[in-house]
Simulated assay, not measured.
Amino acid sequence: MKIDLNADMGEGFGPYTIADDAALIGLVSSANVACGYHAGDPVIMDRTIRLAREHGVDLGAHVSFPDRMGFGRRKMEMALPELECHVLYQLGALAALAGRAGHRITHMNPHGALGNLASADPDIAGALVRATMDFDPEIALLVLNGSALEAAAHAAGCPTYALFLADRAYTQDGQLAPRNLPGAVIHDPEEVVARVLHLLRTGTTTTIDGTELPVAARSILLHSDTAGAVALARCLRARIEDEGGRIAPLSQLG
């Protein structure tokens, strides 16, 4: 079985860093690069793109609301045409730097509040799909199973890959549990690894209220800003391979 292991990267600003991207890049197969809205800047984007290309890692756009102070985790009210422009702006910035480095965008993964809203709200989901397809209809969207974003992408003929967030709890409807709920963010590395192995063995995950939820994931997401992210990625990759899995970029999953 081939599965993608991806991480959010480039989430610093100027001289400030939030994660060890240089160490993490060799352990994952795809990277979602912050496009300057919730984190990142042109120099960091350029450096992260080049790291990805050097290691044969697929390049994704990690688009967000323009919310650096809140790290993109605060909901913003926008008219849908305005939101589409903001998504296109971020895709264009990443693509310009990627083209110079000889790399290209293969996928898009909305960050934080924008991702949560796109998973639940068909209108916002549609705006993200339209913007992505207007930019490049070959770019795949990373989506939650059964989400509004998955439905909008399928309706428009946009390619998708189902995503599983290794360190986030799920609700019964397949959405991410709100961060303010106890247990919504999983900090224990052993529990994170156990959740992923359970998913790969059974095709399900245990929700925050203890029920089993079917999940047909093709990509496993690690948050690079999680404490011990590099050690966790190394352990998770080894355990997946011990189970007979093969880590491969999204573009090689077929």
Rank of each mutant, 00 (worst) to 15 (best):
T106L: 10
Y161I: 00
T48Q: 09
L232E: 03
P214R: 10
K75P: 00
K75H: 15
A118L: 08
S224Y: 04
G245Y: 15
L232S: 02
L80G: 05
T48Y: 09
E212P: 00
G126T: 05
L5P: 01
I18L: 15
L149G: 04
Y16P: 00
L163D: 15
I3F: 03
A151N: 13
V28R: 03
D4V: 00
Q172F: 08
A23G: 04
H223E: 05
F164D: 13
P137L: 12
A98K: 07
T160Q: 05
A194M: 04
P81Q: 12
L24P: 03
A127V: 02
D225L: 01
L165N: 15
K75R: 15
A23D: 10
R195S: 03
G102D: 08
S224T: 03
L197K: 03
H86D: 13
M1S: 14
P178W: 13
P110F: 08
R73G: 03
M76A: 03
H103L: 05
I220W: 07
R234I: 01
M45Y: 04
G92I: 05
L142W: 11
T205L: 05
T204D: 12
E84L: 09
L197C: 07
G36H: 08
S64H: 11
R246W: 01
E212S: 12
L5V: 01
Y89W: 11
A22S: 14
V57M: 01
V196Q: 13
T211E: 15
A153K: 08
S64V: 00
M133H: 13
A52D: 06
L5T: 07
T160I: 13
S64P: 04
R68A: 06
L141M: 15
L197V: 12
F71M: 12
A61Y: 09
I3M: 09
A131N: 10
I220F: 05
T132P: 02
Y37C: 04
A131P: 00
A7Q: 00
L88E: 15
D225K: 01
S30I: 07
H107P: 02
Q172D: 15
F71A: 02
I186A: 08
L117W: 08
T171C: 14
R74F: 07
T171V: 08
A229Y: 01
G10W: 04
T205G: 03
E212N: 04
P189T: 12
G245F: 13
T226M: 11
L5I: 02
A152N: 11
R47V: 07
R47K: 14
Y161K: 06
V57G: 05
L59T: 09
H198V: 01
N145W: 02
A184R: 04
V185D: 09
V63K: 07
A177W: 04
I44H: 06
S251T: 13
G244I: 02
E150R: 13
V185W: 01
E243M: 11
I220R: 06
H55Y: 13
A140K: 09
P182L: 14
E191T: 14
T204A: 12
T207M: 12
M78T: 10
R47C: 03
A166P: 02
K75T: 14
G70T: 02
S251H: 14
L83Y: 11
R195P: 01
R239E: 14
A233Q: 01
Q90C: 08
I247E: 09
R234K: 14
A216C: 04
L163Y: 07
T204P: 00
